[in-house]
Simulated scan of single mutants.
Amino acid sequence: MNKSFLVQNSLMLAPLIGATGSLMTAVGITLTFIMVTSVFALCMNALRPRLLPATHLLANVLLAATLTSCAELGAQLWSLQWHQDLGIYAGLVALQCVVLDCTGFFQRTWPARLRLYGLFGALMVGLGLLRELIGRGTFGSHLSWLTNASPAHWEGWILTTDGGLRLTTLAPGGFILLGLLIALWQIWHRPTP
């Protein structure tokens, strides 16, 4: 485990905790991350040979901010509620693009990139699903945001009538749930003596 691996993964912690209060928000930030970083990688791979080494960081910042802003405008056009629920976390994708490029992530092979995309997506969607199930007692409560369906009163599939444990939809509850999941993972993969 090297230093760049820790930097890449620690930057993904903020959207993992902040943007997984519901399943649709987690799916939204995952789609934004995959789409923006893929286009960023293609553009930077085309631009990198034409840039001076001193201008790489400036080009990274400008391109990442532009692509993230375009993705946010597209999300706002598609569904305003979905965009508002994403909040500031969609803007963090630009910072992730810059850090991933500075650590050499986009020079890796496609399977290595797809592994990170899959891991990030699975963590986001899994934690979003758990937080929505435990916190709201529903499944797919904001599905109309993603599908842009007309009924705004769609409540999803209600699993509990009392609404669940509200703490898990907040950021502290996300940290607690993530800590419990990590502890379960370590217990499950503990080597037997």
Rank of each mutant, 00 (worst) to 15 (best):
Glu72Cys: 10
Glu72Gly: 10
Leu73Arg: 08
Leu73Asp: 01
Gly74Phe: 12
Gly74Gln: 07
Gly74Trp: 12
Gly74Cys: 13
Ala75Phe: 15
Ala75Asp: 09
Ala75Tyr: 15
Gln76Asn: 12
Gln76His: 14
Gln76Thr: 15
Gln76Asp: 05
Gln76Trp: 13
Gln76Glu: 12
Leu77Met: 09
Leu77Arg: 13
Trp78Thr: 06
Trp78Gly: 10
Trp78Glu: 07
Trp78Phe: 07
Trp78Val: 09
Leu80Asp: 12
Leu80Glu: 14
Gln81Ala: 11
Gln81Thr: 03
Gln81Glu: 12
Gln81Lys: 02
Trp82Val: 09
Trp82Leu: 14
His83Ala: 14
His83Cys: 08
Gln84Val: 07
Gln84Pro: 01
Gln84His: 14
Gln84Asp: 15
Leu86Phe: 04
Leu86Lys: 04
Gly87Thr: 05
Gly87Lys: 05
Gly87Arg: 09
Ile88Glu: 02
Ile88Arg: 09
Ile88Phe: 09
Tyr89Glu: 08
Tyr89Phe: 15
Tyr89Asp: 06
Ala90Tyr: 08
Ala90Arg: 09
Gly91Asn: 12
Gly91Asp: 08
Leu92Lys: 03
Leu92Thr: 06
Val93Leu: 02
Val93Tyr: 02
Ala94Asn: 02
Ala94Tyr: 04
Ala94Met: 00
Ala94Gly: 00
Ala94Trp: 02
Ala94Pro: 02
Leu95Trp: 15
Leu95Asp: 01
Leu95Lys: 06
Gln96Ala: 12
Gln96Ser: 07
Cys97Gly: 05
Cys97Arg: 07
Cys97Ile: 05
Val98Pro: 07
Val99His: 05
Leu100Ala: 13
Leu100Arg: 07
Leu100Met: 14
Asp101Phe: 06
Asp101Val: 03
Asp101Ile: 02
Asp101Gly: 04
Asp101Pro: 06
Cys102Leu: 15
Cys102Ser: 15
Cys102Pro: 00
Cys102Arg: 15
